[in-house]
Amino acid sequence: MSVLVWVEHDGTAVKDATLPTVTAAAKLGDVVLLVAGEGVSAAADAAAKIAGVAKVLVADEAALAHALPENVAPLVATLMADHDAFLVPATTNGKNIAPRVAALLDVMQISDILSVESADTFTRPIYAGNAIATVQSKDAKKVISVRGTAFEKAAAEGGSAPVEPVSGATDAGVSTYVGSEIATSERPELTSAKIIVSGGRALQNGENFHALIEPLADKLGAGVGASRAAVDAGYVPNDYQVGQTGKIVAPEVYIAVGISGAIQHLAGMKDSKTIIAINKDEDAPIFQVADIGLVGDLFKIVPELTSKL
């Protein structure tokens, strides 16, 4: 079986989210990577170093810049003549592209898989992770998005796969990229951070969030996350949101500060190795999943904790 994997990259480097997807793909068959974009030769070279990869296809064209799905999906659908499965990481880009490919191939996508049971059977979370479904696909070709926290990362170094150019991408002429506001931060990315400190509605405003959560995160070398309530209220940007409809994380240690523990939030972090909760309400649902809980006022606890670390 030949498995085509869409590589998430920034033009130069391969993003970490690609690596668990490679591991999932290797469980199905020979792994072929697709690096699509404009000016992506450095990313292609990086992709070729990933361990366990048979081949890297590079599609370098203006139409493929910014991963516009209207232009990427038809190319992938064409390439799929030679492959049996198409895998993407379940990132916002992966989720944007894969279903468009699936519909072009007339197959049902299997979203967010947690495991590969066999060539056609997978497990995936439904209802915010309150249930795990085992699903079997009858489609000849599989289109799959992979939950990054569920698979080990493939080694980023050690491989030396041949790189092959592919052409044929065109601009569908229905969409153009206008711009982006991508925050740059010195902190570890949420989905790969070993430690995460997340803040909730209880922080009351952005100033408190910055003054309390960030110094604690910095002391621990941690990434910073948030509940939906904190994002909706504008304390932090949308890409901080952890949960069913935000980012799925599973760090070694997750510290939830002033977060109640709604099922939608738990869906995004309950596979963390150790969960620590700080909340003034001893009955808050977060304590039902927390390994270590501290009941009290975060405005007293967090500064004290930061100073004692």
Binding site: V107, M108, I110, T121, P125, I126, G129, N130, A131, I132, A133, T134, V135, Q136, S137, K138, D139, K270, I275, E282, F287, Q288, V289, A290, D291, I292, G293, L294, V295, I301, E304, L305, K308
Partner: peptide, 22 residues
């Protein structure tokens, strides 16, 4: 196109310990 073979509850996390102070 997909057949659901089974639906199960995820592994349960149990509540841990409460600590008294910072």
């Amino acid at each position: 196109r997909l057949t659901t073979l089974k639906v199960e509850e995820p592994a349960k996390r149990s509540a841990g310990v409460k600590v008294a102070d910072v």
